[in-house]
């Protein structure tokens, strides 16, 4: 009867394996909000808590989308109009924190993330749903002549004053990151320990998926499947700025939505920049700033902005990444792109 001695161990192993096969308590929600398709995954036993958290978040995303909209009349457009008067005014609290953070990150990015060039974005047509033609050189030159930057906003407590009549807020390069990070914090406050928010391809996660971390695939900018994957450590976000997200083609030339405030034209050296960071707002703003900085100038800027996990794919298809990103990222088998590991950001 020696087999009986093995029986408990066998049953234990089988039970463990079968349990691993069972689906975790994973609750999934999806809705159009914040101008994109948002997916929320929450892992936990309390389904009603998950339902409540997801519903709250979708409402919150929608409210923020309206408050922070760059061109539809609302809190942000009112603030832009008041800034253009160049007089002191008390800012609405729903936009104040984001404006303060935008100014801070803009300064860190040496102005490459510029949250006040709404007029420039507007003439390119990226404030409507369907841009069709590029603006004339004359229009761009006129806007560049007095192009505002974040230093043109004075901040004194909850009061703001503009210094440039051309100031027009467009927080599109930071708002989603800020909203998703804030959403994660709200879920944490509700007692949720494991969640992932995917806001139109930009993601923040807390906790894990169950038996493994949240696992994120990074889409190949060429449109051919996945180029790499990454496992999120506790409380991390992964944001990518890419030239394929919004663009139009005119007379055979493609124009994308990431405008270089130095030239007035789309930045043209890079295809995508992926940033991994605990702070979604910073990851969002930094991915845009590093995209504009380009393959030659992104490293000092990344260091200045305090982001160390960066992957850039340039126009030649080369994958350039920091040593710390190399440790985190797993390129897909059969990757044919040349991989360059940058020097550490010292």
């Amino acid at each position: 009867m020696s087999c009986c001695r093995w029986l408990p161990a066998v049953l234990l192993i089988l039970t463990a394996l079968l349990t691993a096969c069972e689906k975790q308590n994973l609750h999934r929600y999806q809705s159009f909000a914040f101008g994109t398709l948002i997916e929320i995954k929450i892992r936990g036993d309390d389904k009603s808590l998950a339902n409540q958290a997801a519903a709250n978040l979708f409402v919150d995303f929608d409210r923020r989308h309206n408050d922070w909209h760059a061109w539809q009349p609302g809190k942000l457009t009112q603030t832009s109009a008041l800034l253009a008067t160049e007089e002191w005014f008390t800012a609405d609290e729903t936009v104040l924190a984001l404006i303060k953070l935008s100014k801070q990150y803009s300064q860190l990015s040496s102005g490459l993330f510029n949250p006040v060039i709404g007029k420039l974005i507007q003439v390119w047509g990226f404030q409507g749903s369907e841009p069709l033609t590029p603006p004339s050189q004359e229009i761009i030159a006129r806007l560049l002549d007095k192009l505002p930057n974040a230093d043109d906003i004075d901040i004194d407590g909850n009061r703001l004053r503009g210094h440039n009549s051309q100031l027009q807020l467009d927080l599109g390069a930071i708002a989603k990151g800020y909203a998703v990070s804030t959403g994660i914090q709200k879920m944490r406050d509700l007692g949720i320990k494991h969640a992932l928010i995917n806001a139109g391809g930009d993601l923040c996660g807390i906790g894990n998926q169950g038996e493994r971390p949240w696992r994120i695939g990074i889409r190949n900018p060429s449109g051919n499947g996945i180029i790499a994957s990454i496992e999120l450590e506790k409380d991390e976000c992964v944001f990518t700025s890419g030239d394929y997200e919004r663009y139009f083609t005119h007379e055979g030339k493609r124009y994308h939505h990431i405008i270089d405030p130095r030239t007035g034209y789309p930045a043209d050296q890079v295809v995508s920049v992926t940033v991994l960071h605990k702070n979604g707002a910073l990851a969002d703003a930094a991915s845009t700033a590093l995209f504009i900085a380009g393959p030659d100038d992104w490293q000092p800027l990344a260091k200045k902005m305090g982001v160390s996990d960066v992957m850039m794919i340039d126009k030649q298809g080369r994958i350039i990444m920091t040593p710390s990103m190399q440790k985190r990222i797993k390129l897909e088998p059969g990757n044919k792109n040349k991989v360059i590991i940058s020097k550490p950001l010292t």
Binding site: E39, K41, L196, N198, G201, D202, L203, G205, Q209, W214, R215, I216, G217, I218, R219, P221, I226, S229, I230, V238, F239, T240, G242, Y244, E245, T274
Partner: peptide
């Protein structure tokens, strides 16, 4: 799922 989300 192999991936819990796709970043782009």
């Amino acid at each position: 799922e192999r991936f819990d989300g796709i970043n782009f």
